[in-house]
Each structure stands twice: as C-alpha cells, then as structure tokens.
Nucleic acid binder design. Structure first.
Length: 892
DNA sequence: AGCTTAGCGA
DNA sequence: ACGTCGCTAAGCTA
C-alpha cells in the first residue's frame, strides 16, 4: 500500500502579513537613531530597519502576497471597554515621529497595501487576514513582535517573532510555543490572561507565571475549565486566582483577537508585484537610502528570474511488518537513507526514513516486536549508510529507546558547519531555506496524546524533514568537495560523532557530598566577604551589581575612575586590583574576595544542578560551534572548571572515578599551540629549542635579551611567555604593554627583539593574513578552513578583528584537529583491544579517561602514544599523563 | 527577553 | 582600537 504525499503541504500561495507598528518599533530600537537621519533632519532608522526586514522576509520566505497592518491613533474598542488598556506606556520618542507615515509611503511605492480600521488594532487585522488567507488555501506568515499573535498559529499559519532586534526573526510554530509556554497556541490566550501582560497594562493573577498557568490549563483543559473548578485549586495561588478572577476574565476578553473584520482590501490586492520604480527612486532619494535601493531592485530583478524551487513529490510506503521494512531498505541497494526522528516532550516518538522519492514513517511506541528488531538491526548496521541532521542528538534519542546507531554516512549539521564554520546556527529549517530555497514544514504534535494516534500529526513534517536532510546532504556534499572539506568530514568529524556520543553518555562521576560541602564552604566565604564589604562602607549593597558598585566606588568613596564602559566605569577584577594598589581601601579587598567566592559557588551550584540520577554529570559537546574547529562543552561546561587558584582547584576534587573503575587518567599536551606555531612558521630557532627539549620560554628569553639561558630571570621568562602566546592571538605592542604593565615603547622594543631573533615567526604571521586576504580563508595543518571575508572590509575595526582571527585560526584549529585525531585513534584502540576503560572528557588539550581495573598501564601507554603521534610535526609533541582518584589528583 | 558585565577555561 | 576561541550567571532595562 502506498499513497502519494506532497512534501510541501503548503500550497504555492503564501501570504505574509506584518504588524506595522510593532515591527517599526523593533526596527527603531534596533538601529541607532543618530546614525539614520536625512540631511533635513528627518530620522529614518525605523523606516530603514523596517524596509530592510521586509526585503529579507520577501527574499527568504518568498511570499506571493504581502500586506501590512497598522494601528490607528484613535481609541480602540478595547480601550473603550477598559480605559486602562495599554495605559502607562511611555510617550513615543521624538525621533520616531513621522516614520510610520514614511513606511506607509514606501509600502505604497512597493504596491503593498497598508491596512487599518477604526476602532480595531493591527492584531485584529492580522487575525482576520490570517483566517481569510487560510480559507483561501494560503500558507500564512504573520510577522509580529506582539505575543498575542501566538494565538493565530495553526498548521497553516506561522508567526515570525523577533528574538532580538530585526535581524533574528525565527518562525514560531505550535511546538515552539509549547516548548516555551507549555501550552498549545490555541490555549496561549488563556495563559496570557492568567499571567497578565505588562506591556498592555493588563495585570493577571499575582504570583502566577507561565508555569503555573500552563499547569492549570493542562489540568483543566482550558480557562473555562479552570474557572469551573476554581474552588478546588489549592494553595496561595488558588486564593490569588479567586481574588483576581475578574482580571483574568477581563484579560481573556481583551486579548481575544477579532477574525471577522470587514476590510475593504481583498487578497488579490495583496499580490506581490514589482515596485513602482519611479516612486521608489524619488522616495529613496528623499530618504537618502542607497544600499536599500539596490537591495530592493536586485531582489525584484532576481524574483523575476527565479521560479519557485521544485520539491520533488515522493511516495510514502506503508511499513506494517518486518518484511516490508526490509524490502524498503533493500530496494535502496545500499544507498544511504536519511533518518529523521520526530521529537515530542524530549523523546523520539517516531522515525521518518527517506530514500530518494520513497519514504517510510514509523511510530516508535508499540512497535511490533519483529518490526522493532528489523529496525534496530538497520540502525545498528555499520554497513547500512544513514544520513542525519545532528546524528549525535539522534543517537541519544534512539539510545533512550534502546536503539543503537552505527553507519553514519553523513550529517548535514557537520557539512553545513564545515562549509560555514562561522555561522552561529545550523538548524535544519534554516539550512534548507538558505541552501535549497524552500521552507520545510514543521512539527505538529499534541503533547501527551500520542497514544491516541495523534503521532500521525508528526508524520508529514518528519517525512518532509527527512526528505530535506536527504536533499541537503546531496547539495552540501557537492559544496564540501568544492571547498575541499570532504576528507575532513569523512575522516575526522563524522567518525568523531560516536566517540563524543559515548563520552556524553558515560558522563563523569561526581562526589555530591563533597560538592555540597564545597557549596557550604564557599557560601560562608561569600557571607564573610559581604559582611566585611558592608562594614567597610557602612551599609549594604548588592555586590553582584556592577551598577550599584559604581555608585559606591566612584561616588560614595570617590575613588579614581577606571576604564570607561558603556554603562559608566568598569569594576572588573583588574581595575579593582589597580584601585587597591592606589588607595588600599578595605572595601576593595572584601569585594574581590566576594567576587572570587561567589564565582566558585556559582560553579558548584551549576554542577550540583547537573548531576543526573546516575550520580554523574553528562556534558554535551558541541561539534559545530567554534569557528576554529574546537569542541565546546555545555550543560554544563566542563571545559572551564577552575584550576588556577588553590580554592578553585578544590572543585576538581569532586570529579571522581566511578564505581567499577580503578582510577582516572588525564593526559595533556604541553605547549601545543606554541609547538604548532614553531611547526607552521618553520622557525629554525624555535624548532631547535623544542628538539633539544629546552625550556622554551627560557630559551626564547635568552635570545631576546641576549643572555645565557641560565641568566634568564623569571621576569624575563614571563615577559617572553606572554609575548609568545600573545603572538598567536594577534597581540599588538599596545596590548603587550598593557598586559605586562610596561611602556608601549618597551613593549615595541621587546617585539622587535623577538622578531629579530625569530624572524620566521613574523614572516609566517604576515603570510597567513596575506594568504587569507587573497584566498578568503585560512587553513589548518589538516586542511580545515575558516572563511574571513571581512579581511577586505572597508571598516577598519572589522578588518582588524578578522586579521586577528586569521592569525589565530590555523594555530588553534590545528591543535583542535590534532586532539580530534588522537581521540579517534584512542577510541578505536580501546574498542579493538577490548578494553573496558573509556574516554570521559576533552578539555581542548587534555583528555580524561576512566580506567578499568588492571588496565592502567596499557591505557596510559596507548593514550600517551596516540596523542604524541597524532601528527608528524617539525617539533616533537610532548604529552604528560597523570593518575588519580579525582580529576584534581590526576593532574600532574 | 535581550543586553551588559563579569569571570572561568584552553 | 588595541589578544583568540568558548559558556554561564546575574543584574538591569524593556
């Protein structure tokens, strides 16, 4: 049995409707008014931002129809019902005046209708248009900065809600609303009524936030249900609800949008057509918009040429038993199959498989036993190639259901990252829109109702997403090859996925008791320091508030001013130290002690919160975040556990060897980045020093200061050490002088002497930037590229930042590559050698392993060897192992 | 809610 | 303007 499914359920008619005022305001606050004004003094930042946003929307979303709704100045029917509605708002800023009119004029020139209707709000117009659009078979996109718009979300209507400013406006679907507010969009208005809306001057029930409101809604179905059962709601919040029930009913009445307005515009009027060229020219002349003018005309020129992207129709194959699943898989003749989990409530509830114009949907709950066995065999088969978007996340989801995964042939998350390592997000929908130029349908899940068969709501979007992953994989593979990143993907990043997965799954054991003791310890330090600080100034103050500290330091105590920052003067540790030297004020001592202690307590708190029921902390490694190729660690970040201070190091003692294991082993590289710099630069002096096993900084110091190595003082040594490391980050003589607290002249001379002795380093650093400017990218030893188009920017500041990034990327990136290679080989040998020991953590140049009884010697040798042999450089790699029952003890 | 400041690591 | 790459927490303004 098969049926044909249109992957893009949405018809080709797409209606984009915008809340004009709310987006104009967002634009106004996103762009500085002082930078956008005509020579006649008219401010244009809101107009500029709004039009820019609109052009981006048209380019990305490719609507066929567009309209903008505006509020009127006259009182709305809501205001008539409730005179306080939207009361207490600040007056609109002077600079905003006139800009709405200008936006309407631009809309006119673009032949986009501007709609308002007395006595209604733009929101009601949006609601009406959304309904009319849906009825006419459109897919609808509502752009609004007002959360009331969430009630409009359906399977055909999405809300684009600005996250920040006007450049980041992600689409919100039902799942996104639910993830954020714990209710479906159709109940959002009930939730808002309970919680209240400060922006509209609509107080709700005091003490009731989204969580409580959502709990009630999910318990009683909706607001009406809550009100019916109002007397059975217990606790203080129940009392509050009964007391403020009038607020709630009023709010609910007011936040209900009208869908039935009589508008004198038809959908036809909204059809997107070419702008009126002459009008735009005149208007943009007056507004002095030049880049926008070009963007606008380019966009419409491109639209003429580019027809809507074709998304292939595919056949949905019903898989009722093991045999039909096997048949589906075998029909692919060994070609890769895209596997995409459908997620609800943090669990994989279904799986979409896509294999070139044929697709399968499987619900994971209540699978037939034979079918489940067949599926498990397919997923675990390393010779059955599979394509994922974020395979590691999928592995966790499936592992939670007892399914293991092997045979990861491609991961579009990884590919996208290697192609654009600087991009901050690589979400599937975004990538599809960016690379394949179409919109992927999104999930529609009813939480907690899966057993009722509603998981079928997930099927269509999951299938379409699986198709997207499949198509994206093909597209990105071409790009990968063109950018010479295919080997990196195949040989390094993809094989690393199961290694990282295993590390995350394993986690690291912690001694919670010790963690709690530490918490108490640091808390008492915080209290002591606070009391001393308060005593020193004669009153209490929030020591964690830089703003309040500024008042104390620079007004009350009238201490010398520190470095200027946006909000006044900095109170950072370095400046406090300076102030202490200058003034010796006891408040500073106490404040610094407070800062140290509270930081450590926060770290401990974070760790405590992260301990799982298994007594271990499971971090997540992000493989596609750091532009240089490093991993990053989050939830919690285990790559920034304190180590430099004695007190901080105590935290490392809570990371312990787990039950059934013998000890922890840490192995780290010594001076990896300096060694890479020696290798990349080919500097004979540096290479010789490393080959002879000299103390590098002492050696460099003797050359720079022209003394015998034995005569290098610790001061000299620390100076060249700072400089050596600084060079890899693009340190300037100014920066060096600041860090070493010496004059700029002295710093400059130091650098000159350095480069006189190690000329190849200077040559290398210069060539890196030059090459990158020419090619557009830097490259690591393993061929990992970082693209730096801003090296050619006309903006000096951006160019300088890009230059420093260019200096650093090959060094930091090569080190990252090296560690990854070592991890892969270690993982492989651990597996093939049948060892029970396992890798737990990676901290950039350090690996932490948990050693099974009797394996210490073998593993220590294995890890040390593989880390040392990860690359064949012109200098030896020095690797240092350490053993102990805790992470602290294992350090050497 | 997003920005800013601060501070931890490599 | 002035050293790279990260993550998290808190306060504050909106």
């Amino acid at each position: 049995m098969s049926e044909t499914t249109k992957p893009t359920e949405a018809s080709d008619k797409r209606l984009l409707i915008i809340d004009g005022h709310s987006m104009a305001f967002r634009a106004f606050y996103a762009l500085p008014a002082e930078n956008f004004a005509t020579s006649t003094g008219q401010h244009t930042n809101a107009v500029h931002g709004f039009v820019s946003m609109l052009l981006t929307m048209i380019r990305q979303q490719k609507p066929t129809h567009v309209a903008v709704a505006f509020d009127l100045d006259t009182p709305t029917f809501r205001k008539q019902e409730y005179s306080e509605y939207k009361g207490g708002r600040n007056k609109t800023p002077e600079e905003f005046h006139g800009q709405i009119d200008l936006i309407k004029q631009v809309m006119g020139a673009m032949n986009i209708p501007s709609i308002s209707l007395d006595p209604f709000e733009a929101d009601d117009i949006l609601a009406t248009l959304a309904t009319r659009g849906e009825d006419a078979g459109f897919s609808v996109l509502v752009v609004s900065g007002d959360r009331d718009a969430f009630q409009l979300i359906t399977d055909r209507t999405l809300v684009l809600y600005p996250k920040k400013g006007i450049s980041d406006i992600p689409p919100m679907d039902a799942d996104a609303v639910e993830a954020k507010y714990f209710v479906r969009p159709e109940r959002y208005s009930d939730l808002a009524a309970l919680v209240g809306e400060t922006a509209d001057n609509l107080p709700g029930v005091p003490g009731v936030g989204p969580k409580t409101a959502a709990k009630w809604i999910n318990q009683y179905g909706d607001l009406a249900g809550i009100l019916e059962n109002i007397d059975s709601i217990k606790g203080k919040v129940g009392d509050a609800l009964r007391e403020h029930v009038d607020n709630v009913t009023r709010n609910r009445k007011l936040n209900q949008l009208r869908h039935d307005l009589e508008l004198d515009v038809t959908l036809e009027d909204m059809e997107l057509e070419a702008p009126n060229r002459e009008e735009i020219e005149n208007l943009f002349d007056a507004l002095e918009f030049n880049t926008l003018r070009k963007r606008l005309f380019d966009l419409f020129a491109a639209q003429d040429e580019e027809s809507a992207p074709e998304v292939a129709e595919f056949t949905r194959v019903e898989v009722a038993d093991a045999a039909s699943l096997r048949a589906f898989i075998e029909a692919g003749q060994g070609a890769a199959i895209a596997v995409h989990p459908a997620v609800s409530g943090g669990e994989a509830v279904g799986l979409a498989l896509y294999r070139g114009l044929e697709a399968v949907w499987m619900e994971l709950a209540g699978l037939d036993e034979a079918l489940e066995t067949e599926l498990a065999a397919f997923l675990a088969d390393s010779h059955a190639p599979k394509i994922f978007h974020d395979a590691k996340a999928a592995m966790h989801l499936l592992a939670d259901r007892g399914l293991s995964v092997a045979g990861i042939a491609d991961d579009t998350l990884i590919s996208a990252y290697l192609i654009q390592p600087d991009r901050r997000s690589h979400e599937l929908a975004e990538l599809v829109s960016y690379h394949l130029k179409y919109q992927v349908p999104v999930h529609q899940v009813k939480k907690g109702e899966l057993d009722l068969g509603l998981a079928s709501d997930l099927a269509d979007p999951a299938l379409a997403q699986a198709q997207a992953v499949f198509d994206l994989s093909a597209y990105l593979d071409t790009q990968l090859a063109a950018k010479h990143a295919d080997a990196l993907a195949r040989d390094m990043e993809l094989p690393l996925i199961p290694v990282l997965f295993a590390m995350e799954r394993a986690g690291i054991a912690v001694n919670t008791e010790r963690l709690n003791e530490l918490r108490a310890h640091f808390t008492s330090q915080v209290e002591t320091a606070s009391n001393e600080a308060f005593a020193a100034i004669g009153h209490e103050v929030n020591l964690s508030s830089p703003k309040q500290l500024q008042v104390v330091l620079f007004e009350e105590l009238d201490l010398p001013k520190t470095k200027k920052i946006k909000t006044g003067y900095t109170t950072d540790a370095e400046s406090l130290q300076d102030l202490l030297v200058k003034t010796g004020h006891p408040f500073l001592v106490a404040l610094m002690a407070y800062r140290d202690a509270i930081k450590l307590r926060q770290t401990v708190d974070g760790l405590l919160k992260a301990v799982h029921p298994d007594g271990r902390i499971h971090t997540t490694y992000a493989q596609t975040v750091a532009a240089t190729g490093r991993l990053s660690s989050l939830n919690p970040n285990l790559q920034n556990i304190p180590v430099r201070s004695e007190e901080g190091r105590r935290i490392r003692d809570v990371f312990v060897v787990g039950e059934g294991y013998e000890t922890l082993l840490t192995v780290d590289y010594s001076q990896i980045e300096m060694r890479i710099m020696a290798h990349l630069s080919g500097d004979e002096g540096l290479i010789q020093a490393y080959q002879d096993g000299e103390d590098l900084h002492r050696f460099v110091g003797s050359r720079v200061f022209n003394v015998e190595p034995s005569e290098v003082t610790s001061e000299m040594r620390s100076k060249v050490k700072a400089m050596s490391y600084g060079l890899a980050y693009g340190l300037s003589s100014f920066g060096l002088s600041k860090q070493l607290k010496i004059g700029v002249d002295e710093a400059r001379k130091l650098m000159k002497d350095y480069f006189d002795r190690f000329g190849a380093v200077r040559t290398y650093l210069r060539s890196v930037v030059e090459q990158a400017r020419k090619d557009g990218y830097t490259e690591t030893i393993f061929g990992r590229r970082r693209y730096l188009p801003e090296l050619n920017s006309s903006d000096r500041r951006l160019r300088d930042i890009a230059e420093r990034a260019a200096l650093n990327a090959p060094i930091q990136g090569s080190a990252a590559d090296l560690v990854k290679v070592a991890m892969l080989r270690i993982a492989e040998e651990l597996a093939s050698g049948g060892y029970a020991s396992r890798m737990l953590l990676q901290v950039h140049d350090e690996l932490v392993l948990e050693i099974a009884p009797g394996e210490l010697e073998a593993i220590s040798e294995l890890v040390t060897r593989e880390m040392g042999a990860a690359a064949d450089l012109l200098v030896p790699l020095d690797v240092q192992p350490g053993v102990g029952a805790t992470w602290h003890e294992a350090a050497h």
